[in-house]
Structure formats: C-alpha cells, structure tokens
C-alpha cells in the first residue's frame, strides 16, 4: 500500500480546514504513515462477493409525518454564536464559490 507524503498531509489538512503548523505536518506525516500501513490490512480479505455494511442494524423506511414540530426561537438559535447581526449569524467574508 502507498505511504503518505508530507505534501499529501498538507493537502488533507487543507481539505479538512486545519491550519496545521510545519511541525505538525512532520508529526502527522510520520504517524499517519504508520497507521495507514497498519489499517491497510483490510485489503487482505477477499472482497468481490462480500456486500459492504454501512449500518449495523438492518432497518429501512424510517419516515416522519410531515407535521410541524416546535423548533428554537431566534434567540435560542443564536445563543451560541460568536457574532450576530439583525437576527443572523455574522461570519467573515465568504470568497467566491457558489452564490
């Protein structure tokens, strides 16, 4: 199995929105390498005829009636917010992307 490079760790950190330090990059690269080498064992078991399991208990079709339930007040909704304005969550400027 592949091992993981420092650059790959930096890419993962970007994807995961973690502003890791240079030191952390080294530490994590080494540790993830060891862990991945170990967990890659899952590739040893034959696979083609085995269905994957995503849920531990085999339930299907669990639905809710389309009925309004009491939610939170605006004050409760905003109670944990680092910043608010006019009943809304205030966040730093969002660059580009989808509007």
């Amino acid at each position: 199995m592949n091992t993981i490079s420092r650059d790959e760790v930096a890419h993962l950190a970007r994807l995961a929105r973690l502003a890791v330090t240079e030191d952390e990059l080294d530490t994590f690269a080494a540790q993830l390498d060891v862990i991945l080498a170990s967990v890659a064992r899952v590739g040893e078991v034959a696979a083609d005829d085995i269905p994957p399991t995503s849920h531990a208990v085999p339930l299907t079709n669990v639905f809710r009636a389309d009925e309004v339930r009491p939610g939170l007040t605006q004050q409760q909704a905003l109670s944990g917010a680092p910043a608010t304005e006019d009943g809304r969550f205030k966040v730093p400027q969002i660059l580009g992307g989808d509007e």
Partner: peptide
C-alpha cells in the same frame, strides 16, 4: 411540504431570519 426534509421546521417563505430552525437544521 409543510416541513423540512429532515426535521419538523416549517418551510414557509419570507419568515424573519432564523425563526424556522431547530437543532437538526442548524
């Protein structure tokens, strides 16, 4: 629908901000 996809909050258009929310849709 009267309520959201995964919670019981109403879907009406034009309500004051953050008044049709619950732990799930927040």
């Amino acid at each position: 629908t009267a309520t959201k996809m995964f919670c019981g909050c109403p879907t009406a258009f034009g309500a004051p901000p953050n008044t049709q929310v619950c732990p799930t849709c927040l």
